[in-house]
Simulated assay, not measured.
Amino acid sequence: MNRAEREAAVRRIMERTPPPVPVDVHAEAVHRGERLLRRRRVARRVLWLLACAAAVAFTVWASRAHPWVEPPSQTTPPVTGW
């Protein structure tokens, strides 16, 4: 099939009348779209809740563990008897 034949085939397909669409397609598409948006909204809220919980957990851990303080050195023994 050369280019002219392909173009003619495409034109024939495009010139045909479109098949009839069932009546309830619009309502079903709206229902599915609403369900998809609802799921995305719930997922987004759950992710925000997890992010906030992680931030709170990190803050509590950091306030108790003080990770920014350098631990005391353990390489030299304490000096006694001076």
Rank of each mutant, 00 (worst) to 15 (best):
A57P: 01
N2P: 08
E7Q: 08
P19N: 11
T75S: 09
R38I: 03
A8D: 11
H31P: 02
R32K: 13
R16A: 06
A9D: 04
R40K: 11
M1L: 10
R12W: 01
V60P: 00
W82T: 08
E7D: 12
R16C: 04
A55T: 09
G33K: 10
W48F: 13
T80L: 14
H26P: 09
E15C: 02
P22K: 03
T80W: 10
N2L: 03
T17S: 00
V42A: 15
V69T: 10
C52E: 08
D24R: 13
A27K: 15
V42E: 15
H66G: 01
W61I: 02
M14G: 04
G81D: 08
A4R: 06
M14A: 12
L50S: 11
T75V: 12
E70L: 03
Q74H: 03
V30K: 08
P22M: 05
L50W: 06
P77T: 07
T59R: 11
A65S: 10
P78W: 00
E28L: 11
P20E: 12
E70G: 00
H66S: 01
R45D: 14
V25W: 07
T17F: 00
P67S: 02
V60M: 02
S63D: 05
A51Q: 04
T80G: 06
P19I: 05
W61Y: 13
V23Q: 12
G81R: 05
E28Y: 08
R40D: 12
F58L: 03
E28N: 14
E15K: 04
A54K: 00
R32H: 11
V60R: 01
R32L: 14
V56H: 01
P71Q: 04
T76R: 13
A29R: 04
V30I: 12
V60G: 02
E15S: 11
V56M: 00
V42Y: 13
I13F: 07
R40N: 10
C52Y: 08
A62T: 14
A51I: 09
R38D: 13
R40W: 11
H66Y: 04
M14T: 07
E15N: 15
Q74S: 06
R12D: 02
A8I: 05
V21G: 05
A29Y: 02
A55V: 14
R3M: 11
P20D: 09
P20F: 00
T17L: 00
W68F: 07
R11Q: 15
P19D: 14
V21A: 03
V23W: 02
E7M: 14
A27T: 13
V10E: 11
L47R: 15
T17H: 00
V60F: 01
I13K: 06
D24V: 10
R39H: 12
T80A: 09
D24C: 08
